[in-house]
């Protein structure tokens, strides 16, 4: 029961603007539908090829999900770089049906490429539209700058990884180095790459920007990259959920719903009374992280006063 000992509460700060919160939940829905309709689309040609075209009379695939008749039974297989695995029941054959990804992870549940495409492109537009809104709002309110990793973040990276490995999370005003690198990686690298590899599959867009085909190494390589970046985004999603659960899901949820986030108490500050005493020493944190701790943007300060 010693865990129940109530630690001193830190102040609530206004951390997430309405733009960030709105777009965050729209993206959550977008990624959900894009992924499951994407798997539906993949099922129509359950192979990943490298190059400009697909090999029918030669083999240029690195990944394939298929099915074959083995005696009385249907056998599902998955081939990765020439190594084959029996995946009957999940990939290739599921519920006695021949289909690459099973009904549980495709929208719609039955094999329906037309519907999968219609929904995929709807949410692709929604994602691009909300990304544009977020970028513009982020430039205006300084959120983008908060996400960009700086030199001090790279120096803080070592201690932060060590703390994360021990599941010791710091709830600070600013994003930590790992958070910055992760969010910046998703927002500035993975999502733009997702959009560009997606557009590279469009024959009409190929005529608008033919160089994209060369950048990604051909339409089929672009398709393969689109799939691999999807896996990276799923990886991000899983880690994101785990980190939210481990670091305090209610505080995290509150900040993404209302904007208000409770940061760790500042021991010296709470003893002295007035908050915002940035010069007070703080043993819990790596010294490098203090750099990010001075109040800068205007929005955080009223919150401090409110708590103090």
């Amino acid at each position: 029961m010693s865990r129940d000992a109530r630690p001193a509460k830190g102040p609530l700060i206004y951390r997430q603007s309405i733009w960030t919160r709105l777009t965050h939940w729209i993206w959550a829905a977008c990624l959900f539908f894009l992924m499951l309709t994407g798997l539906q689309i993949f099922n129509a040609y359950p192979k990943l090829d490298i190059g400009k075209e697909s090999g029918f009379e030669y083999d240029n695939s690195i990944f394939e999900i298929g099915a074959r008749q083995a005696g009385d039974e249907l056998q599902g297989f998955t081939r990765i770089f020439g190594s084959e695995f029996d995946t009957t029941g999940v990939l290739g054959v599921s519920n006695g049906q021949v289909r690459a990804f099973p009904a549980a992870v495709t929208i719609p549940s039955n094999q329906d490429l037309a519907t999968g495409r219609v929904i995929h492109f709807f949410f692709a537009w929604l994602l691009v539209g909300t990304l544009a809104i977020w970028f513009i709002a982020g430039i205006a309110n300084g959120h983008l700058r908060q996400l960009l990793p700086r030199r001090s973040d790279l120096r803080a990276l070592g201690p932060e990884i060590a703390d994360h490995a021990r599941l010791r999370f710091h709830h600070q005003r600013r994003y930590g180095a790992l958070q910055k690198l992760t969010y910046a990686g998703v927002m500035f690298v993975l999502l733009p790459l997702m959009i560009l590899t997606g557009l590279s599959m469009s024959p009409s867009f190929n005529a608008v920007a033919p160089f994209l085909l060369d950048v990604f190494g051909g339409r089929q390589t672009a398709r393969t990259l689109h799939f691999l970046i999807m896996l990276a985004l799923i990886g991000f999603f899983l880690i994101h959920i785990l980190m939210v659960l481990a670091a305090g899901p209610l505080n995290g949820l509150r900040s993404m719903l209302s904007g208000w986030y409770r940061i760790d108490p500042e021991p010296a500050a709470s003893a002295q009374g007035p908050a915002g005493d940035a010069s007070a020493p703080k043993q819990l944190f790596a010294p490098e992280q203090r750099i990010d701790h001075e109040p800068r943007s205007g929005e955080a300060q009223p919150a401090d006063r409110k708590e103090a």
Partner: peptide, 12 residues
């Protein structure tokens, strides 16, 4: 030219 099928494959 490259023929792109709605299924996902291409052929030149």
């Amino acid at each position: 030219t490259r023929h792109d099928c709605v299924e996902g494959w291409s052929c030149i």
